[in-house]
Amino acid sequence: MEINFDKNNDGLVPAIIQDATTKNVLMLGYMNEEAYQKTVETRKVTFFSRTKNRLWTKGEESGNFLNLVNIKNDCDQDSLLISVNPVGPTCHKGSDTCWNGVNDQSFGFLTELEDTIQNRKENQDDEKSYVASLFRKGINKVAQKVGEEAVEVVIEAKDDNDDLFLSESADLLFHYLILLQAKGYKLNDIVEVLKSRG
């Protein structure tokens, strides 16, 4: 990998640190060539500290290491994206990220949908909400809806109408997310089971 350490007068390149699993950005540091080489050799992310004017391995005092997964160079060869498996919080102030964020797994729109479903579960008195009405009817009704939607997906899979197949697939996924929460779980719980089978 060619990295242009000479682009700036200080010989440093920015290193964006990203959790390899959640894809959340954890922090930004700087590396010189020596820090980069040490990171590659030890598999623990090492920066050049501008305040201490020396190499600094993240976690050398706290134990909260950033275990290297991989390094990517950008198109100009002057900044790095470093994927890591963090051990403990990343920020020296104790938070998961240096932006005071929580390093939770997110599935984008599906996580937003899960949050909406959770809101309906917690507010079952909403007479206008279809999801709240399912929760009011209980686990048997929710499970029945998942079964019905699964059968419809199978039927549409055997036909040639892709629009109907996708529509029924969306209905199945939607009702499955409701069933998961009716049982007290979320998508991340299923992901952990799948990962354990790796």
Rank of each mutant, 00 (worst) to 15 (best):
T42W: 01
E149V: 00
F135Y: 11
L166Q: 09
V146C: 10
T51W: 00
F107N: 05
I17A: 01
F65V: 03
E41L: 10
A20Y: 12
P89S: 11
L68C: 05
D126H: 06
K52E: 13
F174L: 14
N161S: 08
F135H: 10
K128W: 02
I82W: 01
N32R: 02
K145S: 11
M27N: 13
S62Q: 08
A182F: 03
S196V: 11
V131Q: 08
E127R: 15
Q181C: 04
S95A: 02
M27S: 11
N8G: 11
L177Y: 09
E152H: 03
A20E: 14
G11Q: 05
G88R: 07
D125L: 10
Q118H: 11
T51R: 10
G108I: 06
V45N: 04
F107Y: 12
F48T: 05
D96Q: 09
Y36D: 01
N67G: 05
D96I: 08
V102I: 14
E168M: 03
L134Y: 14
L172R: 09
S167L: 14
V153D: 07
D19P: 03
K186F: 00
A143C: 06
L68K: 05
L194R: 13
S169K: 06
L26N: 04
K58S: 03
T90E: 06
L164M: 14
D78R: 02
F48A: 05
N73A: 13
V151T: 09
M27E: 04
I117V: 12
R54E: 15
T21D: 14
K72Y: 11
T111L: 03
I82C: 02
E152I: 02
L134E: 11
A150Y: 13
N4C: 08
V153Q: 04
G108S: 04
F65K: 04
F48L: 06
R54V: 05
K145N: 11
S106V: 12
L164T: 15
V142W: 09
L80D: 07
A143H: 10
F47C: 12
D10L: 07
Y185D: 08
I17K: 01
L55G: 08
V13K: 01
I117W: 06
L164W: 09
N85E: 15
D104Q: 15
N85I: 15
R120H: 14
G29T: 12
T97M: 04
T46G: 02
D171T: 00
V87M: 07
L113T: 06
R50N: 03
